[in-house]
Amino acid sequence: MTTTTTSTATAGTGAAERRRLVEDFAYRMRHHALNMGEVQGQGYVGQALGSADMFAAVYADQLVYRPEDPDWDGRDRFLLSTGHYAIGHYAALAQAGIVPIEELETYGSDDSRLPMSGMSTYTPGMEISGGSLGHGLPIAIGTALGLRHQGSPSRVINFMSDGELDEGSTWEAAMGAHHHGLGNLTVLVDINALQADGKTDTVMRTEPVADKWAASGWHVQRVDGNDVGQLLAAFDAVAQDAGPDARPSVILCDTRVGCGVPLLEEREKAHFMRIEEHEWKTCREQLTAGHEGATK
């Protein structure tokens, strides 16, 4: 059986080893993201780099799935609400063995299975068609209800962005998840504090974010979303909170746009980051140097 059940399966490997597996996964994801970005000459590379650790924690440590059978009934469901983060999701799907790594170079091209915005009808392992923001969480409520109704132990993880906190549907769903006691639902919010029109606090003030989720009846944690140790500890705390009276859980992840590539981390933040042709090589070199420095 090739089921990947990493969360508990890797418990015996030691905390340091567990963390290293996730960090390596994230590092490879970031290279994939840069490669995809270079194909298009632009794209949501900043978001992909910033959220890579979150995706890596999910796919390398938490999610139960079968790479060779992405529609396997017993899988956990990972919903990408922010469709434009597909570049990051594809990087994770490739690293997880669900999408061939060679296929990543078709990202955003005609007839590719990897469109710019993630869609369930195009890509194996893509559960929903995101993109119209504020959809993932309502769908996740139905998925979690449906799985529980049918006696499935599978979990639902919804990945969303802080920009989606502007959408009313997010809060309809937040109330619904609490009302229905969906302990099988975990939400990751990528708080990069950046939206299409600028910084989140200038577009729509969403803080205090943690208080809002807590007031909606959720189990709330806020972590550095670029710190794998904190992410794994948060997932462990979600597992601790499980039980017959379990609440839905949200892990609020503060992240840095462009994380892992100093050139991009320092650049003026933009929703759609422009990277010049000659800069891609520098980006890759900086990413590799950073990772080697960290693992020495």
Partner: peptide, 8 residues
């Protein structure tokens, strides 16, 4: 949205 999730 939830109806769609259930159908899935």
């Amino acid at each position: 949205g939830a109806a769609a999730g259930m159908a899935q």
